[in-house]
Design a protein around this nucleic acid. Sequence first.
DNA 1: TTAATATTTAGATAATTATCTAAATACTTA
DNA 2: TAAGTATTTAGATAATTATCTAAATATTAA
Lengths: 87, 87
Amino acid sequence: MNETFKALADPTRRKILELLKERDLTAGEISEYFNMTKPSISNHLKILKQADLVQDEKRGQFVIYSLNTTVFQDLIGWFFSFQKGEN
Amino acid sequence: MNETFKALADPTRRKILELLKERDLTAGEISEYFNMTKPSISNHLKILKQADLVQDEKRGQFVIYSLNTTVFQDLIGWFFSFQKGEN
DNA sequence: TTAATATTTAGATAATTATCTAAATACTTA
DNA sequence: TAAGTATTTAGATAATTATCTAAATATTAA
């Protein structure tokens, strides 16, 4: 869970997640949305992947990134417990 | 929102939130749960407060901290949009 | 008013993180 | 196989962050 929260702490990474909400994208397509080098974006993608927030699939010379929605479940649960006072 | 996610990125701060889920606590009581100096905890509390995740109220020489649940609503909404594909 | 207690502020430092450039890897196509 | 394209890895650096100690502030009680 710590890795997940750390991954979410960066605005670039949250923006990437929001882009992937719309549709799957290649690493190169993602980098076009930012004023940042491809290696930097690649590093952000790596962090998101290690946090299980995204998945990747190699197709030819491209790597296609997509959301891994299962972890969002857990996060919703975590936040929900503060709302309702569960454990 | 950035301040909020940054605040949540630290495990000590998340532990503080979980303690406050049980009951309101003074700064001193909170610090007893950690192997860390009071100034360090005080700094974490300040960050949580700036992120609107907690509130504080001075009572005599004590400062009582409590959860500010309204921001958790927003967070749940943010995460929910990934689950359901809303905007 | 002095002493004790609770908390925060200030300033320093070590660790972590975001970013860059240069180079490496992997795949495709000519 | 050579050249071109997509992506990642490596290594360096500047900025941010978590933590500490020492000191300041605020409140209570003697």
